[in-house]
Amino acid sequence: MARIIVVTSGKGGVGKTTTSAAISMGLALKGYRTAVIDFDVGLRNLDLIMGCERRVVYDFVNVINGEAALNQALIKDKRCDKLFILPASQTRDKDSLTSEGVGKVLGDLSKDFDYIVCDSPAGIERGAMLAMYYADDAIVVTNPEVSSVRDSDRMLGILASKSRRAERGEEPIKEYLLLTRYSPHRVKLGEMLSVEDVQDILSLHLLGVIPESKAVLNASNSGIPVILDEKSDAGQAFSDVVRRYLGEDVTHRFIELEKKSLFGRLFGG
């Protein structure tokens, strides 16, 4: 039985797809058979960030409609043979996702995979609701600003009441906070909420803090999940996140302003 992880936020553009790509790659690199599904029907994006957009033949909706078998639609990652991508349809409208259809696909995938990562669309509409409905774990991606925190809070309420686990009265979805696009510098200037501020409002287990980083944009432009950029701060932060998710005790990094090295001080780098 696979564990189903939803990467969700409420607010758009906070880094869900970046996170889904990084975490699914991270889990696969650890040897777990992992599938990552793009729930953002009409706005497919995950395949670009995973760098497999030119190999898409069938998509999630094709599988739901019975127009393609699951193994025809799953794209095997070129860098890691444990990772498979189920892309979203760019042409269909959102109503093509049905609850039964999604349940069936997740059920089928569960037999073969250890982890299924669901990249949720923004908002609290149908696509987002379906992405979280079957989840066992939720990674709530939040930027350190008030509107994002508020939307995450809203999403947490929905996770607690509208999921399958909630409806069946089972153990609730495990919720994790992932703070992304964090800039200690801007926190210091008072332009951003600090980790403590966000923790105080959401009171949630902190899975990690991903710094604001140029590496993210570079990675998505070249279709490489940023976790593979091992030298980058964001890549390392995501590696930590995966290890923490798997139960390792890893101290948080990239939260404090880094002291500039002598070199940095001399050259203002």
Partner: peptide, 25 residues
């Protein structure tokens, strides 16, 4: 559990005790 933004709880004819936080909204 925390009462999150967008959630609404009403206890008719009795008291309500929240052990956790009640979010804005």
């Amino acid at each position: 559990q925390p009462v999150r933004s967008g959630q609404r709880i009403y206890v008719p004819g009795g008291d309500l005790v929240v052990m956790s936080q009640v979010s804005a909204g």
